[in-house]
Amino acid sequence: MKLGHRLTVATGSALLTAAVITSPAAFADGTASADMSRSAFRAQASAAGLTAMEATTLQNEVDTMLAKDGGRQTAANEIRYADGRLLLPLPGEKYARELGTSGDTSAAAHTCTYQALCGYSGANYTGAEREWFSCTFHQKPSGWTSGGSWYNNQTRGRVGNWYNANKQWVGSTPPAPYGTKHGQWRGIGYVKPC
């Protein structure tokens, strides 16, 4: 093989590698990585029927949560963490939902993913939804200081535990599946889904 041909192959491989590294990656669940641009999130919001003002309002809410609690934005209304995710309701809707699903606000039903312990910022499973999966201490979202609700959708029989800001046990959920439409985040600092 001639040197010129090897250089061409090497250059082509380097360009292909660079293209793969700089293009938005996708997770196994189909969500885009943090490399997804704000314009793509705005396009998602538009496809969900939001006006430009509503999309800006939603992005500002996501930015506020990212600044307070960290994480990685993976959809117009979703933030992913190593231990789960946070879904925000779209402007004008009471219940958080994945984009692409219908926004039925007529019934108070949880949307908690199976094998997760979920908290909601509002009563009756309304407002932001935080899902926790791993059996470790997870800080509750900033701003959840009163009211709210929760659903234990872990494997049957498993309990979730609530702790104060000093990680002292406060109480447990009944065995899964079980939830309460009227909970209380006051006094809770950490959640441990096991």
Rank of each mutant, 00 (worst) to 15 (best):
G157E: 10
A26G: 09
F133G: 08
A43R: 07
S149Q: 07
A45Y: 01
R85D: 05
T11V: 02
D29W: 05
K140C: 05
A10S: 10
G71I: 13
K2W: 05
R158F: 06
T101M: 12
L7A: 03
R42H: 09
A67I: 06
S172P: 08
W162L: 14
S149E: 02
D69W: 07
Q59G: 05
G12H: 01
T8K: 15
R38G: 07
Y95E: 00
G189Q: 06
G12D: 01
A67S: 15
A18I: 01
Y81I: 04
S37M: 03
A34P: 00
N152I: 10
A108R: 01
R38D: 12
G127S: 05
S46D: 09
N124E: 14
M53K: 08
A82K: 05
M65P: 00
R38C: 06
G179F: 05
G119H: 10
A176D: 04
Q168S: 14
A165I: 15
A28P: 11
G92Y: 08
E78P: 02
T126Y: 00
S172H: 14
H138P: 14
G143P: 01
D83S: 14
A128P: 00
T64F: 12
L7E: 03
M1H: 12
A40L: 11
A34E: 12
R6L: 10
Y81D: 03
H110N: 03
T101K: 15
W185E: 03
V9Y: 03
A109Q: 13
A75N: 15
Q184G: 11
S33P: 10
S23R: 00
N124K: 10
S33H: 04
N164P: 07
T126A: 09
N152F: 02
A75L: 13
Y190P: 07
L58V: 12
V20I: 11
T145H: 11
A96N: 04
C118P: 10
